[in-house]
Amino acid sequence: MPKFAANLSMMFNEWEFLDRFAAAADNGFAAVEFLFPYAHAPDEIARRLAASNLTQALFNLPPGDWDRGDRGMACQPERADEFRASVAQALPYASATGVRRLHLMSGHGDRRDAAALEAYKAAIRHACAAAAPLGIDILIEPINGRDMPGYFLNDFGFAAGLIAELDPPNLRLQYDIYHRQILHGDVMKSLEALMPVTGHVQVASVPRRHEPGTGELDDARIFRHLDELGYAGYVGCEYRPAAGTVAGLGWFRP
């Protein structure tokens, strides 16, 4: 079975955020991820990780004003300076936590807009250059339009083509099984095709985004396939527990 990372933005919400680290460790996780750490000091996040002997698998660059609808800003030319400042804000957290993968959210935009596309490419280049000295990969993730209408990066083929075109050594794909199934289907074959550029995998059941094994896909078979493909990274559990986090961990304790 792959190595799993509990997503603390969605799981263990029965605890306050800083207490979720210990809760995840107490329930068998050796790694965690989350959307954003920026409401807390870098050293505090690092202390919680160390206290529970956890690895930080992933978190996102600042998205802008999340509460007002921002889902990143990388594709928005007028926000280039704000984007660069967001990268600078994230790096102390990366250094403190030892994370090796940061997710760059594209923001809302139209891929047919040449200015938006060029802004997105420039943002990726900047983030990759800033992260490279720390040994950090920048990840881009296609997200389906049902969950996030108007999101700029909404196609796996386009994402793979962009990685090939830009070609920095630390640009990788964040392959979310849930988003892949909704956008395109064909999860097993696409994992084979995209594994060479994949830096992180996430999972949730389709269509309700609950625990693995509760939807239309055979998630256990997909996990075995990841092993067969030699995937050695973490699988982030980015799902919403259907009826309590701990009660829903049967899939994790075979």
Rank of each mutant, 00 (worst) to 15 (best):
I124R: 02
E165R: 09
Y178E: 08
M188N: 06
R112C: 12
E192S: 04
L134M: 14
Q181R: 11
L171I: 03
L104I: 08
Q174G: 07
A115I: 00
I182E: 04
A159F: 00
P169T: 12
P149V: 12
A132C: 05
G185A: 05
L191A: 01
I136S: 09
S106K: 07
C128A: 14
D186Y: 03
I177L: 14
N154Y: 13
D167V: 09
N170C: 00
G150L: 12
D176I: 03
N154L: 06
L191S: 09
P142M: 09
D176L: 03
R111S: 15
D147W: 11
A132F: 01
G145S: 14
S106M: 08
R112W: 12
E192R: 07
G161F: 10
M148H: 14
G107A: 14
S106W: 03
G145Q: 14
D155N: 13
A131Q: 05
M105R: 04
A123D: 01
A119V: 10
E118I: 01
L166Q: 03
Q174F: 11
I136R: 09
D137F: 11
R111Q: 11
I182D: 04
M148Y: 13
H108F: 13
R111K: 10
F152R: 10
F156N: 04
K121Q: 13
L162W: 06
A159Y: 06
H184S: 15
H108G: 14
A132W: 00
Q181S: 02
I143H: 08
H126W: 07
A123L: 01
R172T: 01
A127Y: 05
A115T: 10
M188V: 15
H108R: 15
D147F: 02
D113T: 01
A123P: 06
D147M: 13
M148T: 15
M105H: 06
H179S: 00
Y178Q: 02
A129N: 02
E165Y: 06
L102Q: 04
H179W: 07
H126C: 08
R125V: 15
G145K: 11
A131S: 13
N144V: 03
R125P: 03
G145T: 15
L162R: 02
R112T: 15
L104M: 15
G157Q: 04
I163Q: 02
I163F: 03
G150R: 13
S106P: 06
R180T: 01
A116I: 08
F156V: 01
Y178I: 00
D176H: 04
R172S: 02
S190Q: 12
I163V: 02
I143A: 12
G107V: 10
K189I: 06
